[in-house]
């Protein structure tokens, strides 16, 4: 069989109907991978059609045909950009989620622990006075929005420049890279609209992304994240960026008679300022 024929055969097995439709890309890919990897399964399906040579053929599939199938699939993906973005968005979301979710668990456990002995007693007393359930008050406390983490990220490379973290646990450098990859993908796919990805949600957390020219700021928020919080948060971010980042732009705009002073962005100093700007802020 020629490569093309093999491919046609496989395609027939894989997509008996609706060949042209990209309905559920990730499902298909999983199926493809399954079949490519599970040679026995493939042989079973193809056996009635082809002779024993199939055995050696299927054995070489991961190396030879796998990439060809991928190429075909990816061409198809390219021709259905919007559908693919829809299909991939959750996949990419999952990518972050996978890494973040387990960290979040650690995080929320830490939050629980932070409700110290005294705090519990305060709650208990408040419960007695207000007549509300202790759990109810606790929940309320936990659901108010809090800034968990602030990442200052170089826009192009996705390299983390500085961070503030209330209860550190996440690998911030990796998250910065991932956020940048997702942001790049989504923004590139919707290029025409010239929009910036602004919010990523997962479970009880929100990641607010605020883009500037050279850097962007990602803020991880736990609890409710309503419009009011968003406005407050944006003010905080803009203030921070104006005060500590935009001064690099001063270099461009300084008047002739004022000597140019170049300041290197020092990580330690930036992190101190980040903590000061975001650490005790209420949103």
């Amino acid at each position: 069989m020629k490569e093309q024929e093999k491919l046609e055969l496989l395609k027939d097995i894989l997509y008996p109907e609706d060949r042209g439709q990209v309905e559920d890309i990730s499902k298909r890919i999983t199926l493809l991978e399954l079949i490519i990897n599970d040679q026995e399964q493939l042989a079973e399906k193809v056996n009635p059609l082809v002779d024993q040579k199939i055995d050696s053929f299927t054995k070489s599939i991961p190396d030879t045909l796998g990439p060809t199938i991928t190429a075909t699939l990816k061409k198809e993906i390219k021709n259905h950009k919007d559908e693919v973005v829809d299909a991939l968005y959750p996949v990419l979301g999952k990518m972050v989620k996978k890494y973040v979710a387990q960290e979040i668990k650690v995080l929320s456990e830490k939050i629980d622990n932070q409700l110290s002995f005294i705090k519990r007693w305060k709650l208990r007393l408040r419960a007695i006075f207000t007549g509300k359930k202790e759990e109810e008050l606790l929940l309320k406390e936990l659901s108010s929005s809090k800034i968990e983490q602030v990442l200052l990220i170089e826009r192009d490379s996705g390299i983390l420049k500085a961070s503030y973290s209330r209860t550190s646990s996440i690998d911030e450098e990796m998250i910065s890279g991932m956020l940048t990859a997702i942001k790049t993908f989504v923004e590139d796919a919707y290029h025409k609209k010239n929009q910036n990805l602004e919010l990523i949600e997962y479970e009880n957390y929100h990641i607010h992304l605020q883009s500037f020219v050279t850097h962007y700021v990602a803020v991880v928020i736990s609890g409710d994240y309503a419009l009011k919080s968003k406005n407050k948060l944006q003010d905080l971010i803009f203030n921070f960026y104006y005060n500590f980042m935009a001064m690099n732009l001063d270099l461009v705009f300084t008047s002739k008679d004022r000597p140019k002073e170049s300041k290197t962005i020092d990580k330690e100093w930036l992190e101190k300022e980040l903590a000061e700007s975001f650490g005790n802020a209420k949103i």
């Binding site: 890919i29 493809l32 991978e33 490519i36 990897n37 991961p62 796998g66 991928t70 699939l73 991939l88 996949v91 990419l92 990518m95 996705g158 690998d171 450098e173 990796m174 890279g177 991932m178 990859a181 790049t184 993908f185």
Partner: peptide, 14 residues
């Protein structure tokens, strides 16, 4: 791993 898992988009590691 011998399994071929097609990459889509980008994957980040450190």
């Amino acid at each position: 791993s011998d399994n071929y898992k097609v990459s889509i988009g980008v994957h980040i590691t450190k």
